[in-house]
Structures are given as structure tokens and as C-alpha cells.
Design a protein around this nucleic acid. Sequence first.
DNA 1: ACAAATAGGTTTCAAATGAAACTAGTGTTG
DNA 2: CAACACTAGTTTCATTTGAAACCTATTTGT
Lengths: 148, 148
Amino acid sequence: MSLLILEEFFPYHTRLFYRQVSSAVTHVYETRYGLKPYEWRTMAILGPDGDFTANEIVTRSSMDKVSVSRAITSLKQRKWILSKANKHDGRSRLIRLSAAGKTVYQELVPLMLEVEQKLLSVYTTEEVAELRRLMAKIADQDCAKFVV
Amino acid sequence: MSLLILEEFFPYHTRLFYRQVSSAVTHVYETRYGLKPYEWRTMAILGPDGDFTANEIVTRSSMDKVSVSRAITSLKQRKWILSKANKHDGRSRLIRLSAAGKTVYQELVPLMLEVEQKLLSVYTTEEVAELRRLMAKIADQDCAKFVV
DNA sequence: ACAAATAGGTTTCAAATGAAACTAGTGTTG
DNA sequence: CAACACTAGTTTCATTTGAAACCTATTTGT
């Protein structure tokens, strides 16, 4: 006769924690610039000087390639990114922020760092370090390890 | 000239951590019983003896009412839950697991607890307590606190 | 050098999601 | 006891999402 109390179930806590963090963050770029999560992350990866292929964005952001492809398409439509041929590989193109995209990036990044600070303000410096360490401990494992 | 390194951004870590936890958990009920997250959570809330309205499930699970409504519909089709009139309120019905639903629950719960244990096995007992405490510290805040 | 296999990106399709509109029962107020 | 506002739950609709199929360029094997 086993019983599972959802309110005590670790994955359930994880979900509530994640939702709080992610909604705080999303709210900023969503309301200010109408950016979707994948678009924001793509811009964040590119940064002011980036010159990356779609594939490099995928690797660095842990997003899937379909989402990155769509983010690139829509950021290109907004003229926030530019792309040029990749002379080393004709299948891909090198992408970077346009001047307009850099302006958005420069306005948005301080706000994103501010919301990060607000989230972390509930912790002491040691707690932040400890929380990061503990999260990494699960995130860095091979997921096969947890298969039941 | 601000710069944001996604790889050091706290919300990004949170997302990787959450994905790992949630994919481990989802994998179990998904592959074994073809349950969707909302269906599993509904069953988890009901438990062997539950007798709840949809609204009570919403409150206890932090899911939204649309998802709960759909989970109830599909669990009813599978005949894993039963519902009866709520004599105190004609708008809602009282829901509980059927005999078949209880069987699934009894098979699934030990597996879910096992995957929870596997996830937590990377930590010491003190680390588990500390991680839960730290996650709750953000999860329990009013989200307005984090608005930028 | 040329077929076959592979890798980078995009498109298609079906499923998941949530906001808002909707239906129906309950409670409140004059 | 109507008229109104409100709550429980469902449906509709538009958006988000990802797996699989797809196209094109590159690499590999012979």
C-alpha cells in the first residue's frame, strides 16, 4: 500500500520553483519587447559580438534546432539579426545582432540581470553558491542514470 | 556596455535542472502507462481514497482548471476514475479513482518514488533538506516581488 | 571521382497548452 | 422572488512545441 503525497514529492517542488523563476524572467522580455523565450535566448547567446551558426546556438543554449531555426527567422524579420554566408560550410550561415538588435540587447540585459538579482536577493551569497552547486549536481548527470 | 553570459545566468541553470528532473519523472508514467503529466498529477492528487472536486484538484496541484478538466475527461474515458454528484453543489462532481485506477496508482507510485530516490541519490541527506529549503524560498514568494 | 552516408537547417504535421468565451448552478440583494 | 453577480467546469480558438520528414551541402568510402 504505497502512497505518494504530491506536496512532498521532490519533482513537484522543482516544478513550482522553476515556474516562479521562469515566469519572472519571461515577464521582462515578453512585456517589454514581445520576445518569445527562444528569441530571447538566441539574442542572449549571440551577445553584442557573436557570429555563430544556428548549430552553435543550439549547442550553447540547450534548445532544439527547430526552435532556434524559428527564432532566427522571426528575429530576421524584425531586423534584429543579420546573417552572412559561412565560407567554411555552405549549409549554414553566420548570424549576429544588427545595430537595432544590439540596442535591444543593451537595453534588455541590465533588466534581465536585475530580475536575476531580485530572485537571488532572497538568498545569502553562500546560499546562492550552494543552490547553484546542488542544481548542477543533477543537471550535469547523464539522464540515463535516472531511468526507472 | 552590459553583457549577459547565458551559461552563468541563474534562470538558465534552473531550466536545465528542471528539465532533467521533469524528464526523468515523465519518462516513467509516460512509457509505462501512456499518461500525460496532467493525468498523472490528477491521479497523484486523488490517491487511493480521494474524493475531490475538480476545483480541489486545481488548488492542490497548482495546475490550471483547463488542464484538470481535460485530464478528468481522459481518465474517465479510460475508466480510471469515477465521479458522482456533489450534493453540496450541483455544478461540480466528486471524483475518485476506480478500482482499475487504484491498481495503476499502486503500481505506479513505487516507481515514482524510486525515480525520486534516484534523483536524490546524488545528494546527502543534508543536501536534500537544504535544496528543498532553498527552492521553497523562491517558490513561496509572491511573484510580484520579482517584477522588474 | 562518384555513390552513399551524414550533418545543417527548414518545413510539415500533430499534439499540448492557456486565455477567453461560454454554460449552468449558486449566492446575494433589493 | 426576481435580477444580478459570481463560481465550477467545459469548449473554442489561437499559439507553442517537438518529432519526423525533408532539402541541400559536405564528408566518407571505394
